[in-house]
Design a protein around this nucleic acid. Structure first.
Lengths: 356, 356
DNA sequence: TTGAAAGCGTTACCAG
DNA sequence: CTGGTAACGCTTTCAA
């Protein structure tokens, strides 16, 4: 009934070859070809070989769209990140991509900036593409806004994992670094060094910033040291943000002896600002970062920072997601907390060998 | 005939809602819904509104797989990169993604390392997904191997653009930096400084390395200076590769006064090696990089480097591809050559203010 | 201006 | 062990 034989054979316009073509060439039915393709059902040795040969010879590749339509599967994962400016995101992305590819999934990119519209558009697109799950890391999320955007689009209620806290209500698994621990480690280090006036560069509203803040204070308490001053200097989570915050500190709070930036790139910005201001690090002021990007080892002084396992985080993110997609887990929202470790380097210790 | 009404209404198991559901809810036919969805054909004012309302209310999102099956379009672009380790790739990726998203396309990731198998798998996957085009940057390609892998998979002969040289035979557009110019600029800079023993860190077989080499030599000739020595020290294009090469140089060719690394991360590695060996940069030896990643401004000494417009390169890559996809261009392989500019910084000039 | 129906390439069920 | 056929959700003639 279908004019399937109308074409001469291998070629149908500029469309690729179909399972029908393969079937015809192998002298079997499409159903059979499908079986050898998917290794499902019984297929005779000889038939299987014949089909395999034709596939090999023609370079036939099954059409994912058609397959999706019937199986409802795409093996696609959507990734929503605000930016790749911060290398830590690149590392996480890499981890996620590695895990995904190993499991036969592909990652579709959604780098959306801080723009609500772009994020919305990406999510819509993902929904249309029938991605089977979403990896999200949206700063907005922390402000409790974007979950609402996230869920409605997942019509086949595709699972979501979040780089950050889990969301029990919506069964969104979360994986995050142990922020309290991080703050604590940094705190005891700085306490040990006797710093009494320190400033956190970041944003207090962030739940994880708050937790680091917490750990930090506790470390001081445990160390029996009192902080003459501890405040949060608000800044964008970018290098420029760190630079500006540090500049303000130089001007307005010159008695500060240490700053704790909430990520490494802000710390780098701060380092620059101090350099420009003629402040020696760590001589005049100590600097600590968070994340442990490679970069911290290349600059001088090397950056003391709380190193998080970024690749593993990305890998876990994808692994958790795929566990849900493939039904290996379907319980309540999981919360994975990974540990980091403090890397003590010159920006707080300062052999200052290069300075004399 | 189809038991489409069997479900109660909005919900059909965990499948999303379909165009049929919308049609039924709006009291029109699927065809009409399709028309308002795509703005094709005539639709009455009232009808259009009714349909729009239902779509809005239900949050219906059309199924891309089904649409693809009939339109043969996916608005998907496959991206094959060897790594994201080098920040320059991240910047290019960002440029490509931005251009793609603006044009309504999504990028599917294929970070494949140096592994032939992974690359092959990614390409197969892309073919299955019916990506409409491919952005490739495969080192293998330079060795004239992978084009063969690339083309057969593109059954609908999806266009390919290459980060590197074009391929006239296969109509693969190429965009690359003006390597000759880069080499020349670096050459004249180093010549002006009077360096007569310099080593290129990289690989001579690379066509672009060869071109930089060329430009470099010419610059010296034009400057009327003779090089007492110029050779290429083989190295992996990684930080470790740069480190090792530089270490070898320190040991075996201590009279060298300048090195020209073929990318910034190798230059960083070299910087580290020299630091460990107690060689002052630029006092004992000058270092020049290539790419102009941000990082070069954060380290001390700041890295002199040939800055390429990475974001723009990525953007152009995607733009060229989309031009072909949408039929705005279908001529022979284009070759886009972009210029860079030499950023002269402390690793060659050396105020050396931090050293005394 | 709208609807009916065919068809896109695949899988899955049911006979045989 | 194999083939026929319906169905997946959508777009696109073709009629009305």
């Amino acid at each position: 009934m279908r004019a399937v034989k109308s074409s001469k054979g291998q070629e149908r316009g500029d469309r690729g070859m179909t399972i029908q073509d393969v079937a015809r060439l192998a002298g079997v039915s499409a159903a059979t070809v499908s079986r050898v393709l998917n290794g499902s059902g019984y297929v005779g040795e000889k038939t299987r070989h014949k089909v395999r040969d034709v596939i090999e010879a023609t370079g036939y590749v099954p059409n994912a769209a058609a397959r999706t339509l019937v199986t409802q599967r795409t093996k696609l994962i959507g990734l929503v990140f605000p930016t790749l400016e911060n290398p830590v995101y690149t590392e996480i992305l890499k981890g996620a991509n590695d895990a995904a590819m190993d499991a036969g999934y592909s990652v579709v990119l959604g780098i959306v900036g801080e723009d609500e519209g772009a994020s919305h558009a990406a999510l819509l697109r993902f929904a249309a593409l029938q991605v089977e799950g979403i990896i999200a890391s949206n700063p907005e999320y922390h402000r409790r806004k974007n979950v609402e955007h996230l869920t409605p689009f997942m019509q086949r209620n595709a699972p979501i994992v979040h780089l950050g806290e889990p969301d029990v209500e919506h069964s969104i698994d979360g994986i995050e670094v142990n922020d309290y621990e991080g703050g604590y480690e940094v705190g005891s280090h700085l306490a040990r060094l006797g710093h009494e006036r320190v400033i956190i560069i970041g944003q207090d509203e962030n739940i994880y910033v708050a937790r680091r803040h917490d750990g930090f204070r506790t470390a001081y308490r445990d160390a029996g040291l009192t902080l003459a001053a501890l405040r949060v200097e608000k800044a964008d989570f970018t290098r420029a943000g760190g630079y500006e915050a540090a500049s303000r500190i130089v001007k307005e709070l010159p008695e500060t002896t240490a700053v704790f930036a909430m990520n490494d790139i802000m710390a780098m910005g701060a380092l620059e600002a101090f350099e420009h201001a003629g402040k020696a690090v760590p001589g005049d002021i100590a600097v600590v970062g968070f994340d442990g990007i490679q970069l911290g080892l290349l600059i001088r002084p090397r950056l003391t920072t709380f190193v998080i396992p970024s690749w593993e985080i990305g890998h876990t993110l994808a692994a958790l997601l795929i566990d849900r997609i493939e039904g290996r887990y379907s319980g309540p929202a999981k919360s994975v907390i990974v540990s980091g470790r403090l890397a003590i380097r010159e920006s707080t210790l300062g052999t200052r060998k290069e300075r004399t």
